[in-house]
Design a protein around this nucleic acid. Structure first.
Lengths: 209, 209, 209, 209
DNA sequence: AAATAAACGAGACGGTACGTCTAGTCTTGAT
DNA sequence: ATCAAGACTAGACGTACCGTCTCGTTTATTT
C-alpha cells in the first residue's frame, strides 16, 4: 500500500517519507494486536511509528481507512495449494481463512471496518477493492482446478461464471466469518469437513434437486 | 426486553420505571437510524428518552450491551411461513433476513457489536443468547417441515442434529450477511434463488458425493 | 474570586466544586512562576490542579481570563502604611508595586493579558474591574491623608476629584510598569525617590506653572 | 530596517533578496492589523509576503523578534515640532504617542512583545535598542529646547542628565501606555492637558518642595 | 404517619481521544 | 548560499464522549 492518498502537487517540495508509510502500517497492526480496534487511537499509532500525528492524518483521514490498508495485506497471504480434490481444496482454504480470522489483528478489525462502512461509501469501496475483490482469486483458481479435474462443468457464459464465483465467495467467507465471529465457535477440522461436505453436496446430500 | 439487569434487592425502595426501559430502547433504535453506531452517544439516547444518564447506566453497563438489546427484538420478527418446499422456505427466510439487514438500525449495529464482542466475552455471550440462539428456531422449524415432507431424512443422533442445525445457520446467516454487508451487493430474489439452489443441491449440482 | 462564571441553572444537578476553583487558581500561579505566560497551558494547569480540562473550561473560557483572576488577588496585598508625608507614602507604594511586579507571576502575566485585552473587550473589562479599579483605593487613601496633613488642597468638585485620581493612578502605575517591564531597569529606592520628587514637585522643580 | 540578522559568510552564494526583507515586514504589519498578535502566524506572514517560511526564519529566529522589527519603524515617525513652550511640546508628543498606540499594529503588538520579553533577555535587548533607546531622543530634544527657552535649568552633571531623561521618558511613555492600554481610557486633549500640567508643576501644583 | 430505601433528573466530575493548528526544522529541486 | 514548496516533529488547542459521582426530589414499601 505505498501511496495511500496521492498528494495534489507531486513535483515540488519535500517528498513524503516512504519509511513513514511503512512504519505507520506496521505500528497499526501492532496496536491492533495489543489493544484491539476500539482502543486503538491515532495518537498511539503515531507514537509507535515514531511519527507525528500530522504525518498520519496527511495520509489517512480516518482510523478505519488506515486499518483497512494495514490489514488488507494479511489477506494476500492466503493460498490455495493443490490438494487433489475440490473437497480438500475448499477444506484447506477454509482452515487457512479461519486461522487468519483467529489472528488478533484481523479478528478485531474486520467486523469493525465493515460496521463503519455501512455508513461510509468510500470506506465500503476501499474494503471491496483492497480485500474482497483481491481474494476472489481463490475461488476462481479453485474452480479452474476442479474443472480441469472434471469435478465441475465449464460455465456456459462468462457473466454467469462471475456471478457464481461471487456467490461461492460469499458463502464460504460468510460461513467462516459467521461461525468464527458471530457464533463465536471454533472453526476446526471437523467443522471444516462438515461445511465442505455440505457445500459440495448440498442439503439434500447430493440426492438431486 | 424485560428488566435487563436485575437489581440486587428487588423488594424495597422505589421500583424501576418500566416506561423508562421502553423509552430507552426506542430512543436507541431511533438514534441508530439517524446517526449510526459510531455517532450514537449515551447522552443523546438519554436525552431522546427523556431520561437521565444515570437511569440508563443503571440498566446497561455499556453502550454495546444496550444496542444488542435494542436490536435483538427486531430479529424476533423473522418468521418462516410454510411455502410448500424446502427450497422456497429457505428462499423466503433469506429474503426476510436480507430485508432486516437493510434496515439502518440493524445494518449499522450488528457488525459493530460483533466487532466489539471479539474482545469482550460478556458481550459475546449476550449476542449469542439474545440473537444467535433465538434465531436458530428458524432452522429447526424449517428442517422439521422438510422432514415431514420427506425432503430431508431424520437425523440419526440428537447431537448430530444440533451440530447440523448450527452449521446450516452459520451458512445461511453468514452468506446473507457477507453478501449484504461485506460485499455490499443487493440480496435480491435472483441471488436468493441462486443461493438456495446451491445450498440444497451443492456445488456439484446434486451429482456429487 | 470564588464563582468566576455563574452557571445558568444554579439549583439543580451536582454543584460545582469550590475546591476545584481554588486548586485551579493556585495551580495557575504556580505554573506562571515556573513556566511563564507563553508556556503556560490549560492542560498543564488542569494536571497541576488535579482537575480535568473540562472542569477548567467550564469556569474559564480562555487562558487570559483565568490568569487575570489568578493574579488579581496578588494586587490586593498592596497597602499604604502611613509614613508621615505624601512624599514618603508615594515612595512606599511605588516600592511595593515594584516588588509585586518583580514577582514572576505578575511580571510575566500582566503585560500579556493587557496585550490580549487590546482585541477583547470582555477581557479588558475583567482587567479593569479585577485589578485597575480595585487598586485606585490606594490613590484615594493617599490623597485623603495628604489633605488631612494639609499637603494637598481639598478638591472643589467630586467629578474633578475622580478624574485627578485616575490621572495620578495612571502616572504612578504607568511609570513603574514602564520602568520595570519596558525599559527593564530596576525600580530601586533611588529611582523611587527621584520619581516621587518629580511627581510631587514637577519638572519645573516646584518653581511655578 | 536593514538586514536584521547578518549571514555568517556574506560573500559567496546567491545573495539575499532585499525585496523579501521589505515584503515580510509589510506583511507582518498587515497581519497585525487584520489578526492581532495572538492570531498572527509565521505561515500566514510568509504567504502574504509571497515568500517561503525558510526565507523568513533565515532572517528572524522568532515571531516576537520579527514583530519588534516590523513595529519599531512606526515609532520613528514620532516628531517633536516646536510649539513654543515646554508645556505645549510635551502635550504634542503625548498626543502623537497616543495616536500611535491607537493604531492596531502597535496596540496589539507592543504589550505582547514586552510580555514575551520578561522571560527572554535577547528580546528585551532588541526592544530596548529598536524602540526604547531610539525614542529617548524626543526627551533630549524637548529638554534642550526648554533649557534654551529658560524653562528648565541646565543639568549639573551628564550622568544626572541621563538619569533624568530616563526617568522622564518612563513617566511620559508609562502614563500614556497605562492610560491607553491598561485603564483603556481615551488619551484626548483634555487628558493630555491635565497630564502635562501635572508633570510640569507636580502634585503640589507648583507650591511644594 | 413516619421512616426507610431505592430510583429519578440534572449536571458536574476525571479521564481520554479527537482532529486541527502552529512553531520551527528539514529536505527536495531549481536559481 | 539562496529560494519556493511542502513534508516533518512536537505539542497545545478546545470539543466531545464515556462512565462515575453527587446533589435534591420523588415514589414506593415497611414500620
Amino acid at each position: 500500500m505505498p501511496p495511500p492518498a496521492t498528494p495534489p502537487h507531486p513535483r515540488t517540495g519535500r517528498p513524503r517519507s516512504a519509511a513513514a508509510d511503512a512504519a505507520i502500517l506496521v505500528a497499526t497492526r501492532e496496536a491492533l494486536v495489543e489493544l484491539g480496534w476500539p482502543k486503538l487511537t491515532m495518537g498511539d499509532v503515531a507514537r509507535r511509528a515514531g511519527v507525528a500525528k500530522t504525518t498520519l492524518y496527511r495520509r489517512w483521514a480516518h482510523k478505519s481507512e488506515l486499518v483497512v490498508d494495514a490489514v488488507a495485506v494479511l489477506f494476500d497471504e492466503l493460498e490455495l495449494p493443490d490438494r487433489g480434490s475440490l473437497l480438500e481444496d475448499v477444506q484447506g482454504v477454509v482452515l487457512q481463512f479461519a486461522a487468519l480470522l483467529e489472528r488478533p489483528e484481523t479478528k478485531t478489525a474486520l467486523m469493525a471496518v465493515v460496521a463503519e462502512s455501512t455508513r461510509d461509501p468510500a470506506l465500503r469501496e476501499r474494503i471491496r477493492s483492497a480485500i474482497v475483490e483481491r481474494q476472489k482469486r481463490l475461488v476462481l483458481l479453485g474452480r479452474e482446478r476442479a474443472q480441469a479435474r472434471g469435478e465441475l462443468p465449464y460455465e456456459e457464459s462468462p457473466v454467469q461464471a462471475a456471478r457464481d464465483a461471487d456467490l461461492i465467495f460469499d458463502v464460504i467467507a460468510g460461513a467462516v466469518v459467521h461461525r468464527a465471529l458471530v457464533s463465536a465457535e471454533p472453526v476446526d477440522e471437523a467443522w471444516a469437513r462438515s461445511f465442505t461436505s455440505l457445500l459440495v453436496s448440498g442439503l439434500g446430500g447430493g440426492r438431486g434437486r
